[in-house]
Design a binder for these strands. Structure first.
Lengths: 136, 136
DNA sequence: TAAACTGTAATACTATTCATTACAGTTGTA
DNA sequence: TACAACTGTAATGAATAGTATTACAGTTTA
């Protein structure tokens, strides 16, 4: 992970959680994060797919949270943006002629999956609510 | 982390560990990983900086392990290549005018550091020797 | 019918990653 | 001594990923 998507999503969710029942515009949210509103709208799309957020168009439009912030774990958020293993990528085609090259990707896959799983388990114990509560 | 450096380093170290006392050339190692020898030489440089490997120039040159494979933990290897947080990057300049924007990077930094630490602790329990032993 | 939104396509710009070429310097050996 | 086989490293290129930006069609309220 070398992008800002997790930070952006949790920022958006925190803002929405702090204003329950209010329709907040992508422009307003973008202003708080200081990124382009188009990016915010794309991420709001991802949050809608998760069923966490609903948006409405038109004047007085915007987005709001559909679920309670204690139903969203940080692992859930991480899953929606994760696009690589914690330990990175495997090399594409190590030599099958070498006993190590032949087997390393199988071993690495195990190691990579186990490492990712440890992160998931840790993040599963934390909720959006817990994160949001840190702001006063 | 969205690169192959961890995979490359552990591949190199595994090969060296399997041929103790032998000078292996960067070309030979590169052949097993199927990557460019220049990359291997750069990574060997990183391994030398850690004090794990020594290389010698000239005909009959090459590299070999200086330390026992059970003295190198996977956390040590991870540390030498890690260039990002597990959860990615923070947004650069969230708005100080917003109570959330103002504080989020402090909170994210804690969360990011704690998450990274969980990975370290897990990897610290595993050694290069343990990894190498999986190959027969 | 105008204003304020969402959704999305298209394009551009930047950074990262890896490969590649090139070559100076080192060392063993015929 | 000359050559072959290495290391070390600089410079450049190519591909990919990530983010920003512009543009605009469609929706909704007043």
């Amino acid at each position: 992970m070398n992008n800002t998507r997790f930070a952006t999503l949790i920022h958006i969710l925190t803002i929405l959680a702090k204003s329950p029942g209010e329709w907040l515009s992508s422009d307003w949210i973008a202003g708080s994060i200081q990124i382009n509103p188009v990016i915010v709208r794309k991420e709001l799309g991802a949050l809608q797919e998760q069923g966490w957020v609903t948006s409405r168009k038109g004047k007085e439009g915007g987005s709001m949270l559909l679920v309670s912030s204690d139903e969203i774990t940080l692992a859930d958020i991480y899953k929606t943006v994760k696009n690589s293993n914690v330990l990175g990528k495997k090399n594409l085609s190590p030599s099958p002629k070498c006993p190590i090259g032949k087997n390393i990707n199988k071993e690495l896959e195990e190691l990579f999956d186990e490492t990712d799983e440890i992160v998931f388990v840790a993040l599963q114990r934390r909720t959006l609510a817990g994160f949001v509560d840190q702001f006063n």
